[in-house]
């Protein structure tokens, strides 16, 4: 399965190589999609492509190292009632997760999305909803 996790580090743990530890202990590569550091915490969105029990193991390692872990079930959604299929979002999407498909309708391939948020700003009718 492909799992997306939101990790929150408190300042006390932000300088520890916790993610590397999780990678080494689980033996599974973890892809960092997005990372931000604020004055009060570090927030990271990562993707793990592994069996469910391996994903649980990784979550366990992270939690035991004081990282807050939240699974992100669905990350981007297009509000079809609002979307006008202009395609403004497609040009600013770095991974081609958003493209115009059949009959020039907007197609979203969620697994390609890296949660950069470019599409939110580019949408003139605010039809993109991003969870992160």
């Amino acid at each position: 399965m492909k799992a997306r996790l939101e990790l929150r580090y408190s300042p006390a743990h932000v300088n520890k190589p916790i993610l590397s530890k999780a990678i080494l202990e689980s033996g599974v590569p973890i892809n960092i999609l997005n990372a931000r550091l604020t004055a009060t915490e570090g927030i990271m969105t990562v993707e793990v492509n592994a069996d469910e029990n391996v994903v649980s193991k990784i979550i366990g390692i992270l939690r035991s190292n004081n990282v807050e872990v939240k699974e992100i079930p669905r990350y981007v959604e297009i509000n079809r009632d609002k979307c006008i299929d202009c395609g403004a979002c497609t040009a600013v999407c770095p991974t081609d997760a958003l493209t115009l498909g059949l009959e020039r309708k907007l197609v979203l391939e969620e697994e390609k999305c890296i949660l950069c948020g470019n599409c939110l700003k580019s949408c003139p009718v605010r039809a993109v909803v991003l969870y992160k």
Partner: peptide, 9 residues
């Protein structure tokens, strides 16, 4: 290239 107007519409 992306259109700001909608071709589908």
């Amino acid at each position: 290239a992306a259109s700001m107007s909608s071709l589908r519409m």
